[in-house]
Computed example of a mutant assay.
Amino acid sequence: MTDTPSPRSVLVIGGGTSGNSLTVLLRRAGIAVDLVEASPDWKSAAGSGITLQGNALRVLREVGVLDGIEKDGCAVDGVGILACDGTELAAHPDFRTGGDDLPAHIGMQRPRLQQLLIEQVRASGADVRLGTRATAFRQDGEGVDVTFSDGTARRYDLVVGADGLHSATRRMIGITDEPEPTGMAIWRAPAPRPAGVTRTDMVYSGRCFVAGYCPTSEDTVYAYLVEPARDRAELDPDTYADEMRRLSEGYGGAWEEIRASFTDPKVVNYACFDRLLVEGAWHRGRVVLVGDAVHCCPPTLAQGAAMSLEDVLVLAELLTGRGDWDERLFHDYHGRRLPRVRMVVDTSVQIGRWLLDRAPDQERGRDVAALMDRTMTALKEHP
């Protein structure tokens, strides 16, 4: 009688968009997956809304949540550029980076996306532990012994760090790159969707660098205002709603109705823009990183989630398609992802610099449009 070999085992650290998606893809291939999330509240998700570009939707279709996203979100196929008073200056169709069979982008409430992914993880049979951190790794050529914050320990064939911009996993394996501030920050809040709002609209002038909103359902939008970064220690969270009302003064059109809805400071999110790109290898031995743990950029292209999801898709493809989980596999993963991610990071940061420089509107708009066209056209190719 021949013993049946045990399935390979993977520990995924981080229960956000990328960690959840990777868990589902690996479980579908019969790999045993444990997922640990530091927060005891797995359902919480920072931010009020998210823009999912076509190339993000392409991955989320593989994860099995596209139907829910289409049902609960709002598909948009155009972007408007407005003057401060709400007058339309330009309108153009958005890039279908996921292919012609997917919307250009879907806006949705971020907590709802998280819930859809949680449901898929639960259905996959993965072992999930909340309020738990990995505190130590000891690895050899065959696997990793992991110690957890609850005092338990287990051995895995592979550990994946999907624990975000301030990744503890990245630091634990000796990668010293850290995020750098870009000098910009964003205020975001949910709001009722004004009648007549059918697309993403943005203003590139006025008090803020950018004032925009994106539909997230039949009756909601998320609104955002981009300005120079401030010292968070000097901000009082109780005044966040007041600050969004103040910053949005002078913007007309739908902003009149949106502004009036900023009353609850608890639903307002303030975040600074950072840049991170780990140029060197994204692994050490049998511990590998994905998503914001190795790259992050300002959301000027709305490609942050898409880049993280593409990481997951490529890594899952390699792990499920090859017999050996060796150095070559991890170098191939890095080699496939780095050029594409670098293009997005550099483009996003450059657009931010033009906004910071307050270049004349006409010149800035022309340069931004040309750079976005080149970048988004390239992203139509599969990762």
Rank of each mutant, 00 (worst) to 15 (best):
K266L: 10
H283A: 13
E256K: 11
C297P: 10
N269Y: 13
A254Y: 06
A260C: 06
G252Y: 05
F273Q: 09
C272F: 12
R275F: 07
A293H: 04
V287P: 02
C296K: 14
S261M: 08
Y251L: 00
A260Q: 07
C296G: 14
G285W: 09
E279T: 13
A271N: 13
C297M: 15
V294H: 14
L276K: 06
T263D: 12
L276N: 02
V268T: 03
S261Q: 09
V287G: 10
A254Q: 00
R284D: 15
I258Y: 04
W255Q: 00
L277R: 04
A293W: 04
R286A: 01
P265M: 09
V287N: 05
R275E: 10
C296P: 10
R275Y: 11
V287C: 03
E256V: 11
L289M: 11
C297Y: 14
W255G: 07
L276S: 06
V267G: 03
A281Y: 14
W255I: 04
C297I: 07
L289V: 04
V287D: 07
E256R: 13
E256G: 12
E256D: 15
F262D: 01
E279A: 13
G252T: 07
S261F: 01
E279H: 15
V290Q: 09
L276C: 03
A260G: 09
D274Q: 10
L289T: 08
V268E: 03
Y251M: 02
D292Q: 08
V268N: 01
A281T: 14
N269P: 09
C272Y: 13
A271K: 12
G253R: 02
V278W: 11
I258K: 00
P265I: 10
V288M: 09
D274W: 14
V267S: 13
W255Y: 00
H295D: 00
H283Q: 11
D264L: 05
V278H: 10
G253T: 01
T263G: 12
D292K: 04
H295I: 05
E257G: 02
G285H: 07
W282F: 02
K266V: 09
C272V: 15
D274L: 06
E257P: 07
E279V: 13
V290T: 14
K266F: 10
W282I: 01
R284T: 14
E257R: 11
G252L: 08
A254I: 02
H295R: 01
V287Y: 01
H283I: 12
N269Q: 15
V288W: 03
V267C: 12
R275V: 13
A271W: 01
A293L: 08
L289Y: 07
Y270C: 02
F273Y: 15
G285K: 05
W255L: 01
G280S: 12
D264Q: 07
C272D: 15
V278Q: 05
F262V: 09
F273T: 05
H283W: 10
P265L: 07
A293E: 03
H283P: 05
G280F: 08
A254V: 07
V267I: 15
S261W: 04
W255H: 00
L276T: 05
V267Y: 07
